[in-house]
Simulated scan of single mutants.
Amino acid sequence: MKLLIGTGGYTNDDWLGLIYPEGTKQGDYLGIYSRYFNAVEVNSSFYAIPGEKAFAGMLRKTDGKTMFTVKLNKVFTHERSYTEDDVQRMILSPKPIREAEMLGPFLAQFPYSFKRTPEHRKYLQHLVMAFEGHPLAVEFRHASWLKEEVLEAFKELGLIWVSADYPPMEGLPPYQVQASSKTVYIRLHGRNKETWWEGQSASDRHDYRYNEEEIQDIADQIAAIKDVDTVYLFFQNTTKGHALFNYQTLKDALKQHDLVVDIPKGSGLF
Score class of each variant (00 low, 15 high):
residue 4 L to F: 06
residue 16 L to V: 08
residue 18 L to K: 15
residue 22 E to Y: 15
residue 24 T to V: 14
residue 25 K to G: 09
residue 26 Q to D: 09
residue 27 G to V: 06
residue 29 Y to K: 08
residue 33 Y to M: 07
residue 34 S to D: 05
residue 35 R to W: 06
residue 36 Y to S: 05
residue 36 Y to F: 14
residue 38 N to F: 00
residue 39 A to P: 01
residue 44 S to R: 11
residue 52 E to D: 12
residue 57 G to M: 07
residue 58 M to H: 08
residue 59 L to W: 03
residue 69 T to Q: 03
residue 71 K to S: 03
residue 76 F to R: 00
residue 77 T to N: 04
residue 80 R to H: 06
residue 80 R to N: 09
residue 84 E to H: 08
residue 85 D to V: 13
residue 88 Q to H: 15
residue 98 R to Y: 13
residue 103 L to V: 03
residue 104 G to D: 11
residue 108 A to C: 01
residue 108 A to K: 00
residue 117 T to M: 11
residue 117 T to G: 10
residue 119 E to A: 14
residue 120 H to M: 13
residue 122 K to N: 13
residue 123 Y to H: 06
residue 127 L to V: 00
residue 129 M to A: 15
residue 131 F to H: 01
residue 131 F to V: 00
residue 132 E to T: 08
residue 132 E to W: 13
residue 132 E to L: 08
residue 134 H to S: 10
residue 135 P to T: 05
residue 135 P to I: 07
residue 140 F to V: 12
residue 140 F to C: 05
residue 142 H to Q: 05
residue 145 W to V: 00
residue 149 E to H: 07
residue 152 E to Y: 09
residue 152 E to P: 00
residue 153 A to H: 11
residue 158 G to M: 08
residue 163 S to P: 03
residue 169 M to K: 09
residue 169 M to R: 10
residue 172 L to F: 01
residue 178 Q to D: 10
residue 183 T to R: 07
residue 187 R to P: 03
residue 190 G to R: 00
residue 208 Y to R: 05
residue 212 E to T: 14
residue 215 I to K: 06
residue 215 I to F: 04
residue 215 I to D: 06
residue 217 D to C: 14
residue 218 I to G: 03
residue 223 A to R: 07
residue 228 V to E: 07
residue 228 V to W: 02
residue 229 D to V: 10
residue 231 V to G: 02
residue 242 H to A: 10
residue 243 A to H: 02
residue 244 L to A: 04
residue 244 L to T: 02
residue 245 F to K: 11
residue 246 N to L: 03
residue 247 Y to T: 04
residue 247 Y to F: 13
residue 250 L to D: 03
residue 250 L to F: 01
residue 253 A to P: 04
residue 253 A to H: 08
residue 255 K to C: 15
residue 257 H to Q: 13
residue 259 L to A: 14
residue 259 L to N: 12
residue 260 V to M: 12
residue 262 D to Y: 14
residue 264 P to K: 04
residue 265 K to G: 10
residue 265 K to P: 05
residue 269 L to F: 15
